[in-house]
């Protein structure tokens, strides 16, 4: 433990002891020695990094101690029980020394919660998120702006349901920071990329451009026994313009499905009435495995020769088959 952190602990010893005692009063299983390890392994490096970046070590220690104690109490940080993403995040946050020094509690708590949420969302990519946030912190040390960039980044890392909010955030971020979030080398391309993404959920500005053709852009869902969503082959429909999926027959659970170029998320919901959607009102058609879209060439998908349900909106056709727990998503990608 460095002298900086030791002095910071000593200076607020009474408060820190009181906080731990208070927490242990309500959670008797909290172990002082184990929490000591959290302080040494997770808190000290961040305090030292923030102090090196010019922050007040005492203030930073205070904020981080509080968050670390909370996370330790929840079994998310600690030598015995922990959330691997949160633990990794505390190591990685040395790369956020600037913003962390300005708002230690806000930043560490927000990053920890975000990693927890990303880690618990099937298909989301927490490692990519924290790496992206570190990249953003290289050019932005204002905490709130950085955290807003982190929200947009979460969308790019698989939290597809954040898409509308993320697009709005990206439009308001400094262009250089938005370019980092989108993986664009040149900030000048940001407005055009945002414009395309707004109308096409399958556009990824980080990928090289190629002629648009109908393709299977994603296959989402899967059998719950193998870590997927559904117990039985699902069915799809559109409700209020949003894609929804049902587990097997009419007794099954209902999910709202959010999917785009960066990932897919499923959200349990309750609906009044399930109605078949089909492709009416959309530019798509599906006939015996052949998918066509107004303004695009046709393509054959032998797996979709026999389907149990189809739903399509302006950009995406979703289809399910009798023997699969997956939902096929076809778009002009």
């Amino acid at each position: 433990m460095s002298a900086i952190f030791r002095d910071a602990l000593l200076a607020r010893r009474e408060r820190f002891n009181a906080l731990f005692a208070e927490a242990r009063h309500y959670q008797p299983q909290l172990d002082g020695a184990a929490f000591g390890c959290v302080l040494i392994d997770s808190v000290a490096p961040l305090v030292e990094a923030a102090a090196a970046a010019g922050a007040d070590a005492g203030e930073v220690s205070d904020g981080l101690y509080t968050v670390a104690l909370e996370l330790y109490g929840h079994g998310m940080l600690g030598p015995e029980r922990n959330d691997p993403w949160v633990t990794a995040g505390w190591t990685a946050m040395t790369g956020l020394a600037g913003p962390l020094g300005r708002a230690p509690r806000r930043v560490t708590a927000a990053v920890s919660n975000a990693l927890r949420n990303l880690g618990q969302t099937p298909g989301a990519r927490p490692a990519e998120w924290i790496a992206g946030l570190r990249a953003c912190a290289e050019i932005m040390d204002e905490p709130e702006t950085l955290l807003r960039a982190g929200q947009a980044l979460a969308w790019r890392c698989g939290m597809a349901h954040y898409r509308p909010d993320a697009l709005a955030i990206l439009a308001a971020l400094p262009a250089e920071l938005a370019a980092r979030v989108l993986g664009l080398p040149d900030p000048v391309r940001v407005p055009e990329a945002l414009g395309r993404m707004a109308v096409d959920p399958w556009h990824d500005p980080g990928q090289p451009a190629h002629p648009a053709r109908l393709t299977r852009v994603a296959r989402v869902g899967g059998f719950r026994g193998f870590g997927g969503v559904f117990l039985a082959p699902p069915a799809v429909t559109l409700l209020d313009g949003e894609l929804h999926a049902r587990d097997g027959n009419s007794e099954g659970g209902i999910w709202r499905v959010c999917a785009d170029a960066f990932g897919a998320t499923f959200h349990r919901t309750v609906i009044d009435k399930w109605t078949e959607a089909g492709t009416r009102g959309s530019p798509f058609k599906l006939v015996k495995g052949r998918v066509s879209k107004v303004g695009a060439s046709e393509a054959d998908f032998p797996d979709l020769a026999v389907v149990t349900s189809v739903a399509a909106n302006a950009t995406t056709l979703a289809a399910t088959t009798p023997l699969s727990h997956y939902i096929w998503l076809v778009a002009a990608g």
Binding site: R105, A109, A110, N113, A114, R116, H161, P164, V270
Partner: peptide, 20 residues
């Protein structure tokens, strides 16, 4: 509520309190 509106602010909500 039956249909929850997704809010990107939820990303930073969780067990750790931001203190604000």
């Amino acid at each position: 509520p039956r249909q929850k509106r997704f809010d990107v602010a939820d990303l930073y909500r969780g067990p750790a309190s931001t203190g604000e």
